[in-house]
């Protein structure tokens, strides 16, 4: 049973990640390749707060979201100045710089050795969460909250403005909307939720190292998002379900681990190509990348 719970917890984390990526990529057509950087920043900052101070979870989560969100301003600043492919490459650059820092700034991050023994989360400063059950409940609740809030965002006037930015940025500007403000808000919320996923992950597995937050991981999140679909809520959720459950299905088939890891990547890649050809909005998505 613990095995099933583990999968559900990871699924919840990936639902948050794909939903957070959807806000910028799916709604505002801002193709970023650095979601894993925010995921990692959240994990490391959260670890720092958990290990240095004995703070209640809600406070840690709020701090993590705030700090991770603050890092998003670097990306939103780039989005103002850089268009299309230049923006994509700049976000890749941000991803690689964050990874390089996590890997090389050994005094703080312990670099490749990683940080072991991350304590569990304290709810309201009282009892510490341990074991798979506690994280199951916590991640389910947070996932539900994130799904609710992001669904609301997509449907709200805020989502309408992001959608309009995707369609025709200049016209939206000529209608009196501050594009920079809206993009920055989208990046902030996106990064904050990715950071939240990061702290849940770090505290749940109690060990982090930089290899969980690479460009490949960003591309992985991106693949999940595009397979599931962009522009609404159910698309990203389905994408997360697909990429988290597929390896488990392959395990049932009984493939050796060495082959299975590569095979599932091949399946993701093929799925991505086929989806882009037959259904560019994704399996359950609403909008198509411009």
């Amino acid at each position: 049973m613990e095995y099933v719970f583990h999968i559900i917890i990871m699924l919840n984390i990936y639902i948050m990640l794909t939903l957070s990526a959807n806000l910028t990529i799916g709604m505002a057509n801002l193709l970023t390749m650095c979601q894993a950087a925010f995921y990692g920043i959240g994990a490391y900052i959260g670890t720092f707060f958990l290990m240095q101070f004995n703070l209640p979870f809600l406070l840690v989560a709020a701090l993590v979201m705030l700090f991770t969100g603050a890092f998003s301003f670097l990306v939103s600043f780039a989005s103002v100045r850089l268009k299309d492919d230049y923006f994509v490459i700049a976000t890749m650059g941000f991803q690689l710089i964050v990874y390089t820092i996590l890997y090389n700034w050994t005094d703080v991050t312990r670099g490749p050795y990683g940080i072991p023994g991350i304590p569990g989360i304290r709810l309201f400063g009282m009892f510490e969460l341990t074991g798979v059950y506690a994280y199951l409940v916590l991640s389910l609740v947070l996932m539900a909250v994130v799904v609710f809030l992001f669904h609301h965002l997509v449907e709200s006037p805020f989502g309408r403005v992001l959608n309009a930015i995707r369609a025709d940025e200049i016209t939206v500007k000529s209608m009196g909307r501050n594009i920079v403000k809206f993009k920055s808000l989208a990046f902030f919320l996106s990064a904050a939720v990715a950071g939240l996923a990061g702290i849940i992950y770090a505290s749940y597995v109690s060990y982090i190292d930089p290899t969980s937050f690479t460009l490949d991981e960003s591309i992985f999140i991106l693949s999940a998002l595009f397979i599931g679909g962009i522009g609404n809520t159910k698309g990203p959720v389905l994408g997360a379900v697909f990429v988290v459950l597929l390896p488990e299905l392959l395990r049932f088939v009984g493939l050796p681990d060495s082959v299975a890891a590569n095979l599932r990547q091949i399946i993701y890649g093929l799925a991505l190509i086929l989806v882009m050809y037959y259904r560019p909005q994704g399996l359950l998505g609403k909008t198509i990348m411009k």
Binding site: I219, L222, S223, F226, Q265, I266, Y268, G269, L270, A271, L272, I273, M276, Y277, M289
Partner: peptide
């Protein structure tokens, strides 16, 4: 995005 898929494959 399809190109990313091709690279992965």
């Amino acid at each position: 995005i399809a190109s990313i898929g091709a690279m992965t494959v």
